[in-house]
Simulated assay, not measured.
Amino acid sequence: MAKVIFITKTNDAVEVEGDSGSLMELASANGVAGIDGDCGGVCSCATCHIYLTPDDFKKVGTPDEIEGDMLELDDNVTQYSRLCCQIEVSDNIDGMTFRVAN
């Protein structure tokens, strides 16, 4: 079971927990503002853009080529950007905090 925190654009902290699916699905199921997931999690819209801390980015890993291409279309991308539809809910992300980009 992973417990994570999303920080929204209005600086609200939303703590959620889950044990399967993608981080985008978990955020959407819990009404996290700014995580829209318009494409349903197939990495074709960037409406689930998040920022990770440098340490957490190292743990989660870098985006693959398709995700990287999609992130390039977002004006607010940083070196610590990821699409949360591409991050699986697992013990690996337990305790992490993600800042919503949108």
Score class of each variant (00 low, 15 high):
Gly61Val: 08
Thr47Ile: 04
Ala27Asn: 04
Ser28Cys: 15
Gly41Cys: 12
Ser81Cys: 08
Gly31Ile: 06
Asn30Gly: 07
Thr62Ala: 14
Pro63Asn: 02
Glu72His: 03
Ser22Val: 07
Leu83Ala: 01
Ile66Asn: 06
Thr78Tyr: 00
Ala27Glu: 07
Asp75Ala: 13
Asn76Glu: 11
Thr47Pro: 10
Gln79Asn: 11
Cys39Lys: 07
Ile66Gln: 11
Tyr51Thr: 06
Pro54Val: 03
Thr78Val: 07
Gly61Lys: 00
Val42Cys: 14
Gly40Val: 11
Met24His: 09
Arg82Gly: 05
Gly34Leu: 13
Gly31Thr: 04
Asp19Leu: 02
Asp55Met: 05
Phe57His: 04
Tyr80Ser: 01
Gly40His: 10
Leu26Asp: 04
Glu25Asp: 14
Asp56Ser: 08
Ser22Tyr: 04
Ile66Gly: 03
Ser44Pro: 01
Ser22Gly: 11
Asp36Arg: 09
Ser28Val: 15
Leu52Thr: 13
Cys39Trp: 07
Cys45Ile: 12
Leu71Trp: 02
Thr78His: 00
Asp36Thr: 13
Asp74Ile: 03
Ala33Asn: 12
Asp19Trp: 09
Ala27Pro: 13
Asp19Glu: 15
Lys59Asp: 09
Gly31Asn: 15
Ile50Ala: 06
Ala29Val: 07
Pro54Tyr: 01
Asp64Cys: 07
Glu17Ile: 08
Glu72Trp: 01
Met70Arg: 09
Ser44Asn: 09
Ala29Leu: 13
Pro63Thr: 01
Pro63Gly: 06
Cys85Val: 09
Leu73Asn: 04
Pro54Glu: 13
Ser81Val: 06
Asp75Lys: 07
Phe57Ser: 01
Glu17His: 13
Val77Phe: 00
Gly68Pro: 02
Asp19Phe: 09
Glu72Met: 12
Ile35Thr: 05
Ala27Lys: 12
Cys48Ala: 12
Leu83Phe: 00
Cys43Tyr: 04
Val60Met: 01
Ala29Glu: 12
Asp36Leu: 15
Glu72Val: 02
Glu72Ala: 14
His49Asp: 01
Ser22Arg: 12
Ile50Thr: 04
Thr53Gly: 12
Thr62Pro: 00
Ser81Trp: 06
Gly68Glu: 04
Ser22Trp: 12
Lys58Tyr: 03
Pro63Ala: 06
Ala33Leu: 11
Gly61Met: 01
Lys59Met: 08
Leu26Thr: 13
Thr62Glu: 14
Gly21Lys: 09
Leu71Gln: 04
Met70Gly: 05
Ala33Gly: 02
Glu67Ser: 10
Gly61Arg: 01
Leu23Asn: 06
Ser28Ile: 15
Ser44Gly: 14
Gly68Tyr: 00
Glu72Phe: 03
Asp74Leu: 08
Asp38Ala: 15
Cys39Glu: 06
Leu26Phe: 05
Lys58Val: 09
Gln86Glu: 05
Leu73Lys: 10
Gly61Tyr: 05
Asn30Phe: 09
Asp38Arg: 03
Asn30Pro: 07
Arg82Pro: 02
Glu65Met: 06
Gly68Ala: 08
Asp36Lys: 13
Glu67Cys: 07
Asp64Pro: 01
Asp38Thr: 13
Met70Ile: 15
Ser28Asn: 11
Lys59Val: 15
Gly21Glu: 02
Thr53Glu: 15
Asp56Tyr: 01
Asp74Gly: 03
Pro63His: 02
